[in-house]
Nucleic acid binder design. Structure first.
Lengths: 223, 223
DNA sequence: ATATATTTTTAGACTAACCTAAATTTTATC
DNA sequence: GATAAAATTTAGGTTAGTCTAAAAATATAT
């Protein structure tokens, strides 16, 4: 089992890796991210290396091992699920939840996480629009995702999530048959109000406002 | 702000004070409650005394100050609210929630506690039947409650809580169909070992040891 | 390529919380 | 009231995580 502090280091290293492509996280960068000193980072990184959670060579920066990545992603999963809970169920504003989720993410109980996920109807995005990793640690890369409103005429995509996860919006999508996994083609975009006509696999067409297309996340399909 | 560990000490001292009327908690008793050593307790108690959270005189045991009591009660409030959440919203069994609530009770955010309370419709009792302190720290008096072992032959009662909330004990009760809200009559008490035969509303009878009846709380029903 | 600046690591210390073992105080017993 | 037993405290040490200051390695600039 990893300590609260170890978990925070892994999370910081993970998110630094996201930002700077495939280079390892530097000692200083980690120190800045965690508001601590470089020497403390060196100590901790050695410990994480012993536990096979990071790859570390002196002076060469740090990367997560598969094991370390899986721990980090699980914490991010919990963080984002709790954020959904706080906003959707307890009516916090999206900008008030970070510090509380920062504490809740360390609660240890896989069963709790699973049940929370279910209670929240398996949300795919947190209130800030960041994707929530699934229980196996699969996480949608933000790079390979677009808002439906960003697609151009003729482009194909599959619905992978929503930005607005209010029950009103989800209801609306369901009424329109726009659901998770739905495949679609952008048939036409109307200049006037940026509303969009889309075609489903079964040939049916619907028109949606930009407000809607701006809150639906899709993965582009290239063929 | 108090550490996780300090909070656990305050909670332990509070609950020991409940049990043994108005005497201070002894060093050994605290050590046992927290599965630590007496010498560690002495160290921590000195620290809590410096912070004006407990009254402490060497060799004389410990009592909570008003400040310490208020911290302890707030943690108990959070613990019990989270237990309600886990059982009512996430469908955990009442004997599965203690360890998780033990972690959740330390989350620091008064706003969160308040909203959770509201989300749960301001519950007055946790799933084990223990009263939930309100935001000001007022807690319902356990006085109108008896241990099942205190009832006499022929007396009626309804199960409102447990003293031992270990999952082993709760499991045992469930197996015997002794649950929160269960109505019963004391059919017979066996002198030899003080074991007790009780009758349920449906006419079924079971016999329980004094160890069990001594850990079940009931509200007497007079008719 | 050498000197300088920056980054990183090491060395040595600190605090919180814990431990064991020994010393002290209180309580119980005769 | 002396003495044995039990409870409690003290003394000294450990580990996790942190720090400052100095040393070592790497990167940058002329």
């Amino acid at each position: 089992m990893n300590s609260y502090t170890e978990e925070n280091y892994l999370k910081a290293i993970y998110s630094l890796a996201q930002k700077s492509e495939n280079k390892g996280a530097s000692t200083n960068a980690i120190a800045t991210a965690l508001a601590t000193k470089a020497s403390s980072v060196t100590d901790m990184v050695k410990k994480l290396a012993e536990k096979k959670l990071v790859n570390y060579k002196k002076y060469q920066g740090v990367t997560l091992t598969e094991k370390g990545k899986s721990v980090a992603v699980n914490i991010i999963r919990k963080h984002r699920l709790w954020e959904v809970f706080l906003v959707d169920k307890l009516n916090f504003k999206w900008d008030e939840v970070h510090d509380i989720a920062e504490q809740l993410e360390h609660i240890k109980s896989p069963e709790l996480t699973q049940r929370l996920d279910q209670f929240l109807d398996f949300p795919k995005f947190d209130p800030h629009g960041d994707p929530i990793p699934d229980a196996e640690g699969n996480i949608l890369n933000h790079a390979e995702m677009n808002l439906l409103s960003e697609l151009k005429q003729g482009e194909k995509g599959v619905v992978v999530g929503v930005k607005d996860s209010s029950s009103g919006f989800l209801q609306h999508l369901e009424n329109q048959n726009l659901m998770l996994g739905t495949k679609l083609i952008v048939a036409q975009i109307f200049e006037y109000d940026q509303s969009m006509n889309i075609e489903f696999a079964d040939g049916n067409h619907i028109t949606i406002s930009q407000q809607v297309s701006h809150n639906v996340c899709v993965k582009k399909e290239i063929d």
